[in-house]
Design a binder for these strands. Structure first.
Length: 345
DNA sequence: GAAAACGCGCATCTGTTCAG
DNA sequence: CTGAACAGATGCGCGTTTTC
Protein backbone atom coordinates (compact mmCIF):
# COMPACT_ATOMS: atom_id res chain seq x y z
CA UNK A 1 0.00 0.00 0.00
CA UNK A 2 1.27 3.44 -0.92
CA UNK A 3 2.36 5.56 2.00
CA UNK A 4 -0.26 8.15 2.68
CA UNK A 5 0.32 11.85 2.90
CA UNK A 6 0.11 13.02 6.49
CA UNK A 7 -0.14 16.39 8.17
CA UNK A 8 3.58 16.03 8.78
CA UNK A 9 4.26 16.06 5.03
CA UNK A 10 2.01 19.05 4.57
CA UNK A 11 3.66 20.89 7.44
CA UNK A 12 7.10 20.19 6.02
CA UNK A 13 6.11 21.37 2.55
CA UNK A 14 4.49 24.52 3.91
CA UNK A 15 7.32 25.21 6.33
CA UNK A 16 5.09 25.19 9.41
CA UNK A 17 4.30 22.83 12.27
CA UNK A 18 1.60 20.18 12.18
CA UNK A 19 -0.41 22.26 14.64
CA UNK A 20 -0.86 24.94 12.03
CA UNK A 21 -1.99 22.43 9.46
CA UNK A 22 -4.58 21.19 11.89
CA UNK A 23 -5.65 24.75 12.72
CA UNK A 24 -6.09 25.60 9.05
CA UNK A 25 -8.22 22.54 8.43
CA UNK A 26 -10.38 22.93 11.48
CA UNK A 27 -10.38 26.67 11.97
CA UNK A 28 -9.26 26.06 15.53
CA UNK A 29 -10.04 29.00 17.78
CA UNK A 30 -7.03 30.15 19.74
CA UNK A 31 -4.47 29.48 17.04
CA UNK A 32 -4.11 32.50 14.86
CA UNK A 33 -2.98 31.67 11.36
CA UNK A 34 -1.85 34.50 9.12
CA UNK A 35 -3.27 34.81 5.63
CA UNK A 36 0.06 34.07 4.00
CA UNK A 37 0.68 31.00 6.15
CA UNK A 38 -2.83 29.78 5.51
CA UNK A 39 -2.30 30.07 1.76
CA UNK A 40 0.93 28.13 1.99
CA UNK A 41 -0.76 25.35 3.92
CA UNK A 42 -3.73 25.15 1.57
CA UNK A 43 -1.40 25.04 -1.39
CA UNK A 44 0.59 22.20 0.12
CA UNK A 45 -2.61 20.31 0.93
CA UNK A 46 -3.70 20.60 -2.67
CA UNK A 47 -0.36 19.73 -4.19
CA UNK A 48 0.23 16.72 -1.96
CA UNK A 49 -3.40 15.64 -2.25
CA UNK A 50 -3.66 15.46 1.48
CA UNK A 51 -6.77 14.10 3.19
CA UNK A 52 -7.28 13.87 6.91
CA UNK A 53 -7.06 10.37 8.31
CA UNK A 54 -10.49 10.07 9.87
CA UNK A 55 -9.34 7.20 12.04
CA UNK A 56 -6.50 9.15 13.55
CA UNK A 57 -8.73 12.14 14.10
CA UNK A 58 -11.38 10.02 15.76
CA UNK A 59 -8.70 8.62 18.04
CA UNK A 60 -8.05 12.01 19.45
CA UNK A 61 -11.49 13.61 19.32
CA UNK A 62 -13.61 10.56 19.97
CA UNK A 63 -15.80 11.72 17.11
CA UNK A 64 -15.76 10.01 13.73
CA UNK A 65 -18.17 12.38 12.01
CA UNK A 66 -19.98 9.34 10.75
CA UNK A 67 -23.47 8.15 11.51
CA UNK A 68 -24.89 4.75 10.69
CA UNK A 69 -28.07 4.27 8.72
CA UNK A 70 -29.83 1.00 9.31
CA UNK A 71 -32.70 -0.18 7.20
CA UNK A 72 -34.09 -2.67 4.78
CA UNK A 73 -32.19 -2.29 1.51
CA UNK A 74 -35.10 -3.76 -0.37
CA UNK A 75 -37.40 -1.04 0.89
CA UNK A 76 -37.50 1.85 -1.59
CA UNK A 77 -38.21 4.24 1.25
CA UNK A 78 -34.78 3.56 2.66
CA UNK A 79 -33.19 5.12 -0.39
CA UNK A 80 -35.15 8.30 0.17
CA UNK A 81 -34.23 8.39 3.82
CA UNK A 82 -30.57 7.96 2.86
CA UNK A 83 -30.85 10.81 0.40
CA UNK A 84 -31.99 13.11 3.17
CA UNK A 85 -29.42 11.82 5.64
CA UNK A 86 -26.67 12.29 3.12
CA UNK A 87 -27.78 15.85 2.47
CA UNK A 88 -27.90 16.80 6.14
CA UNK A 89 -24.57 15.09 6.80
CA UNK A 90 -22.82 16.80 3.92
CA UNK A 91 -23.80 20.18 5.35
CA UNK A 92 -21.71 19.48 8.43
CA UNK A 93 -18.88 17.40 7.05
CA UNK A 94 -20.38 14.15 8.25
CA UNK A 95 -20.75 10.86 6.43
CA UNK A 96 -23.30 8.11 6.36
CA UNK A 97 -22.36 4.52 6.91
CA UNK A 98 -24.97 2.21 5.46
CA UNK A 99 -25.64 -0.91 7.43
CA UNK A 100 -28.14 -3.73 7.31
CA UNK A 101 -28.06 -6.58 4.87
CA UNK A 102 -31.63 -6.87 3.87
CA UNK A 103 -33.94 -6.07 6.70
CA UNK A 104 -32.96 -8.94 8.93
CA UNK A 105 -33.62 -7.75 12.46
CA UNK A 106 -30.68 -9.69 13.86
CA UNK A 107 -28.34 -7.46 11.86
CA UNK A 108 -29.50 -4.60 14.01
CA UNK A 109 -27.55 -5.76 17.01
CA UNK A 110 -24.37 -6.07 14.98
CA UNK A 111 -24.67 -2.32 14.58
CA UNK A 112 -23.71 -1.87 18.18
CA UNK A 113 -20.40 -3.65 17.54
CA UNK A 114 -19.90 -1.47 14.52
CA UNK A 115 -20.67 1.58 16.62
CA UNK A 116 -17.67 0.86 18.77
CA UNK A 117 -15.42 -0.52 16.08
CA UNK A 118 -15.80 2.51 13.86
CA UNK A 119 -16.46 5.03 16.59
CA UNK A 120 -19.73 6.03 15.05
CA UNK A 121 -21.42 9.11 16.38
CA UNK A 122 -24.90 7.70 16.31
CA UNK A 123 -27.39 5.36 14.74
CA UNK A 124 -30.49 6.15 12.73
CA UNK A 125 -32.81 3.39 11.64
CA UNK A 126 -35.72 3.31 9.26
CA UNK A 127 -38.12 1.02 11.02
CA UNK A 128 -41.35 -0.69 10.19
CA UNK A 129 -44.24 1.42 11.38
CA UNK A 130 -45.16 -0.77 14.30
CA UNK A 131 -41.59 -1.45 15.30
CA UNK A 132 -41.12 -1.12 19.04
CA UNK A 133 -38.50 -3.53 20.30
CA UNK A 134 -37.83 -3.22 23.98
CA UNK A 135 -34.76 -5.39 23.60
CA UNK A 136 -33.19 -3.07 21.04
CA UNK A 137 -33.98 0.03 23.05
CA UNK A 138 -32.39 -1.45 26.14
CA UNK A 139 -29.32 -2.48 24.16
CA UNK A 140 -29.01 1.00 22.69
CA UNK A 141 -29.31 2.61 26.07
CA UNK A 142 -26.85 0.23 27.63
CA UNK A 143 -24.32 1.04 24.93
CA UNK A 144 -25.07 4.74 25.36
CA UNK A 145 -25.59 5.19 21.65
CA UNK A 146 -27.28 8.31 20.37
CA UNK A 147 -30.19 6.82 18.48
CA UNK A 148 -33.15 8.01 16.46
CA UNK A 149 -35.81 5.87 14.87
CA UNK A 150 -37.63 6.85 11.73
CA UNK A 151 -41.21 5.59 11.79
CA UNK A 152 -40.63 3.36 14.79
CA UNK A 153 -41.44 3.66 18.50
CA UNK A 154 -44.48 5.85 17.96
CA UNK A 155 -45.97 4.55 21.17
CA UNK A 156 -42.87 4.72 23.35
CA UNK A 157 -41.89 8.05 24.86
CA UNK A 158 -38.48 6.66 25.78
CA UNK A 159 -37.19 6.65 22.22
CA UNK A 160 -36.58 9.53 19.85
CA UNK A 161 -38.50 9.17 16.63
CA UNK A 162 -39.19 11.02 13.46
CA UNK A 163 -42.77 10.35 12.47
CA UNK A 164 -45.36 11.41 9.97
CA UNK A 165 -48.82 12.58 10.80
CA UNK A 166 -50.71 10.07 8.66
CA UNK A 167 -54.01 11.25 10.00
CA UNK A 168 -53.42 14.77 8.79
CA UNK A 169 -52.07 13.53 5.47
CA UNK A 170 -55.41 11.89 4.78
CA UNK A 171 -57.38 14.91 5.90
CA UNK A 172 -55.33 17.07 3.55
CA UNK A 173 -55.86 14.84 0.56
CA UNK A 174 -59.55 14.54 1.35
CA UNK A 175 -59.83 18.31 1.41
CA UNK A 176 -58.18 18.29 -1.98
CA UNK A 177 -60.67 15.71 -3.25
CA UNK A 178 -63.55 17.57 -1.64
CA UNK A 179 -62.57 20.76 -3.43
CA UNK A 180 -62.86 19.02 -6.78
CA UNK A 181 -65.60 16.47 -6.37
CA UNK A 182 -68.97 16.78 -4.70
CA UNK A 183 -69.40 13.04 -4.32
CA UNK A 184 -68.42 11.22 -1.14
CA UNK A 185 -65.05 9.53 -1.66
CA UNK A 186 -64.64 5.80 -1.24
CA UNK A 187 -61.65 4.62 0.82
CA UNK A 188 -59.70 1.55 -0.24
CA UNK A 189 -57.67 0.10 2.61
CA UNK A 190 -54.96 -2.04 1.05
CA UNK A 191 -53.02 -4.44 3.22
CA UNK A 192 -50.35 -7.08 2.83
CA UNK A 193 -51.31 -9.67 5.39
CA UNK A 194 -54.19 -8.33 7.38
CA UNK A 195 -55.95 -4.97 7.44
CA UNK A 196 -55.39 -2.34 10.13
CA UNK A 197 -52.25 -4.00 11.42
CA UNK A 198 -50.46 -0.79 12.31
CA UNK A 199 -51.29 2.57 13.79
CA UNK A 200 -50.60 4.48 10.61
CA UNK A 201 -53.15 2.53 8.59
CA UNK A 202 -55.66 2.81 11.39
CA UNK A 203 -55.00 6.55 11.62
CA UNK A 204 -55.51 7.00 7.92
CA UNK A 205 -58.73 5.09 7.91
CA UNK A 206 -60.22 6.73 10.96
CA UNK A 207 -59.26 10.14 9.58
CA UNK A 208 -61.24 9.27 6.50
CA UNK A 209 -64.23 8.19 8.55
CA UNK A 210 -64.04 11.30 10.70
CA UNK A 211 -63.80 13.53 7.65
CA UNK A 212 -66.91 11.96 6.13
CA UNK A 213 -68.94 12.11 9.32
CA UNK A 214 -68.01 15.77 9.83
CA UNK A 215 -69.59 16.46 6.48
CA UNK A 216 -72.64 14.30 6.92
CA UNK A 217 -71.36 11.75 4.43
CA UNK A 218 -71.49 8.01 4.87
CA UNK A 219 -67.97 6.56 4.90
CA UNK A 220 -67.43 3.65 2.55
CA UNK A 221 -64.36 1.53 3.25
CA UNK A 222 -63.22 -1.56 1.38
CA UNK A 223 -60.36 -3.72 2.47
CA UNK A 224 -58.29 -5.49 -0.13
CA UNK A 225 -55.09 -7.41 -0.40
CA UNK A 226 -52.68 -4.93 -1.98
CA UNK A 227 -52.01 -6.95 -5.13
CA UNK A 228 -55.42 -8.49 -5.63
CA UNK A 229 -56.24 -7.72 -9.26
CA UNK A 230 -59.36 -9.84 -9.36
CA UNK A 231 -60.80 -7.99 -6.40
CA UNK A 232 -60.05 -4.67 -8.00
CA UNK A 233 -61.67 -5.71 -11.25
CA UNK A 234 -64.81 -6.81 -9.46
CA UNK A 235 -64.87 -3.64 -7.42
CA UNK A 236 -64.70 -1.41 -10.46
CA UNK A 237 -67.30 -3.43 -12.32
CA UNK A 238 -69.63 -3.20 -9.42
CA UNK A 239 -68.97 0.49 -8.98
CA UNK A 240 -69.79 1.17 -12.59
CA UNK A 241 -72.87 -1.01 -12.58
CA UNK A 242 -74.28 0.45 -9.40
CA UNK A 243 -74.00 4.14 -10.00
CA UNK A 244 -75.95 5.72 -12.70
CA UNK A 245 -73.49 8.01 -14.32
CA UNK A 246 -70.85 9.43 -12.03
CA UNK A 247 -68.35 7.28 -10.19
CA UNK A 248 -67.31 8.36 -6.69
CA UNK A 249 -63.72 9.48 -6.22
CA UNK A 250 -61.45 6.84 -4.78
CA UNK A 251 -58.82 7.36 -2.13
CA UNK A 252 -56.44 4.46 -1.82
CA UNK A 253 -53.93 4.25 0.97
CA UNK A 254 -51.13 2.65 -1.07
CA UNK A 255 -50.02 3.71 -4.51
CA UNK A 256 -48.92 0.17 -5.45
CA UNK A 257 -52.55 -0.81 -5.32
CA UNK A 258 -53.48 2.34 -7.23
CA UNK A 259 -51.41 1.08 -10.14
CA UNK A 260 -53.49 -2.11 -10.07
CA UNK A 261 -56.60 0.01 -10.03
CA UNK A 262 -55.26 1.88 -13.05
CA UNK A 263 -54.69 -1.35 -14.94
CA UNK A 264 -58.08 -2.79 -14.14
CA UNK A 265 -59.77 0.48 -15.05
CA UNK A 266 -57.93 0.38 -18.34
CA UNK A 267 -59.19 -3.17 -18.94
CA UNK A 268 -62.72 -2.04 -18.37
CA UNK A 269 -62.32 1.04 -20.52
CA UNK A 270 -62.76 3.40 -17.58
CA UNK A 271 -60.73 6.58 -18.07
CA UNK A 272 -58.93 7.57 -14.89
CA UNK A 273 -58.86 11.32 -14.56
CA UNK A 274 -61.97 11.68 -16.66
CA UNK A 275 -64.65 9.26 -15.50
CA UNK A 276 -62.90 8.06 -12.39
CA UNK A 277 -61.03 10.13 -9.83
CA UNK A 278 -58.24 8.53 -7.84
CA UNK A 279 -55.84 9.77 -5.18
CA UNK A 280 -53.21 7.77 -3.30
CA UNK A 281 -52.00 8.04 0.27
CA UNK A 282 -48.32 7.72 -0.61
CA UNK A 283 -45.73 7.77 -3.35
CA UNK A 284 -43.51 5.03 -2.05
CA UNK A 285 -42.13 3.92 -5.40
CA UNK A 286 -41.89 7.48 -6.65
CA UNK A 287 -43.67 6.44 -9.79
CA UNK A 288 -46.94 8.32 -9.37
CA UNK A 289 -45.85 11.15 -11.63
CA UNK A 290 -45.05 8.70 -14.42
CA UNK A 291 -48.40 6.99 -14.48
CA UNK A 292 -50.95 7.88 -17.11
CA UNK A 293 -52.46 10.13 -16.03
CA UNK A 294 -50.06 11.22 -13.26
CA UNK A 295 -51.46 9.92 -10.00
CA UNK A 296 -52.27 12.54 -7.39
CA UNK A 297 -51.22 11.65 -3.87
CA UNK A 298 -49.94 12.75 -0.53
CA UNK A 299 -46.22 12.55 -0.54
CA UNK A 300 -44.66 11.25 2.66
CA UNK A 301 -41.47 13.29 3.20
CA UNK A 302 -39.00 10.46 3.66
CA UNK A 303 -35.96 12.42 2.55
CA UNK A 304 -36.90 15.18 4.94
CA UNK A 305 -37.29 12.62 7.70
CA UNK A 306 -33.76 11.39 7.08
CA UNK A 307 -32.51 14.94 7.05
CA UNK A 308 -34.32 15.81 10.25
CA UNK A 309 -33.09 12.65 11.95
CA UNK A 310 -29.49 13.62 11.26
CA UNK A 311 -30.06 17.19 12.44
CA UNK A 312 -31.58 15.97 15.69
CA UNK A 313 -28.82 13.49 16.22
CA UNK A 314 -26.04 16.00 15.66
CA UNK A 315 -27.83 18.50 17.83
CA UNK A 316 -27.95 16.02 20.67
CA UNK A 317 -24.20 15.50 20.30
CA UNK A 318 -23.56 19.21 20.63
CA UNK A 319 -25.89 19.59 23.57
CA UNK A 320 -24.99 16.75 25.88
CA UNK A 321 -27.32 18.12 28.54
CA UNK A 322 -30.39 17.09 26.59
CA UNK A 323 -28.64 14.40 24.62
CA UNK A 324 -30.60 11.52 25.93
CA UNK A 325 -33.91 13.26 26.32
CA UNK A 326 -36.08 11.45 23.81
CA UNK A 327 -38.49 13.42 21.72
CA UNK A 328 -40.94 12.87 18.92
CA UNK A 329 -40.95 14.94 15.80
CA UNK A 330 -44.03 14.80 13.64
CA UNK A 331 -43.63 15.88 10.04
CA UNK A 332 -46.33 16.83 7.61
CA UNK A 333 -47.02 15.17 4.28
CA UNK A 334 -47.82 17.31 1.26
CA UNK A 335 -50.54 16.94 -1.32
CA UNK A 336 -49.27 16.49 -4.86
CA UNK A 337 -52.22 17.10 -7.19
CA UNK A 338 -51.46 14.99 -10.30
CA UNK A 339 -54.07 14.62 -13.02
CA UNK A 340 -55.98 11.64 -11.71
CA UNK A 341 -58.89 13.71 -10.43
CA UNK A 342 -61.75 14.30 -12.84
CA UNK A 343 -62.55 17.99 -13.03
CA UNK A 344 -66.17 18.81 -12.39
CA UNK A 345 -67.74 21.87 -13.74
C1' DG B 1 14.01 -30.64 22.59
C1' DA B 2 11.75 -28.01 18.90
C1' DA B 3 7.74 -25.56 17.74
C1' DA B 4 3.80 -23.13 18.71
C1' DA B 5 1.16 -20.22 21.73
C1' DC B 6 0.88 -16.78 24.97
C1' DG B 7 1.73 -12.52 27.65
C1' DC B 8 3.77 -8.28 28.49
C1' DG B 9 5.87 -4.01 27.51
C1' DC B 10 6.84 -0.82 24.21
C1' DA B 11 6.99 1.77 19.85
C1' DT B 12 4.31 3.30 16.01
C1' DC B 13 0.72 5.62 13.62
C1' DT B 14 -1.50 10.47 12.80
C1' DG B 15 -4.29 14.51 14.08
C1' DT B 16 -5.63 17.57 17.90
C1' DT B 17 -4.90 20.33 21.87
C1' DC B 18 -2.80 23.38 24.99
C1' DA B 19 0.86 25.74 27.45
C1' DG B 20 4.40 28.66 26.30
C1' DC C 1 3.16 30.11 15.88
C1' DT C 2 5.80 25.94 18.05
C1' DG C 3 6.60 21.73 20.56
C1' DA C 4 5.20 18.33 23.60
C1' DA C 5 1.69 15.45 25.18
C1' DC C 6 -1.92 12.53 24.13
C1' DA C 7 -5.52 9.15 22.20
C1' DG C 8 -6.12 3.77 21.50
C1' DA C 9 -5.55 -0.01 18.24
C1' DT C 10 -1.98 -2.63 16.30
C1' DG C 11 1.98 -5.21 15.87
C1' DC C 12 6.64 -6.28 17.01
C1' DG C 13 10.26 -8.07 20.12
C1' DC C 14 11.29 -10.90 23.62
C1' DG C 15 10.79 -13.96 27.31
C1' DT C 16 7.98 -17.63 29.18
C1' DT C 17 4.84 -21.49 29.01
C1' DT C 18 2.45 -25.17 26.76
C1' DT C 19 2.07 -28.79 23.31
C1' DC C 20 3.57 -32.51 20.55
Amino acid sequence: MAKRTTSFDVAKAAGVSRSVVSAVINGTAGIGVGTETREKVLKAIKELDYHVDAGARAMKTGVSRCVAAFGDMKNPLFLQVLEGMQRACAERGYHVLISGKGGDERDRFELLDLYRQRRLDGIISLDAISFESREWLDAVRKAKVPYISIEGYAGTAEASSILVDYRESILDVLDHIGAISSLAPVYLDAYLEKPGSNWAERARRSAYERWCLDRGLAPVVHELQAYDEAWMLRFLEELRGRENGKLPPILINWSVSASILYRMAWKLGIAVGKELSVMAGDNTNRSNAFMAPPLGCVEIPYAEMGEEAVRRLLLSLEEPSQAMRPEKLWLKATVVPGESMARER
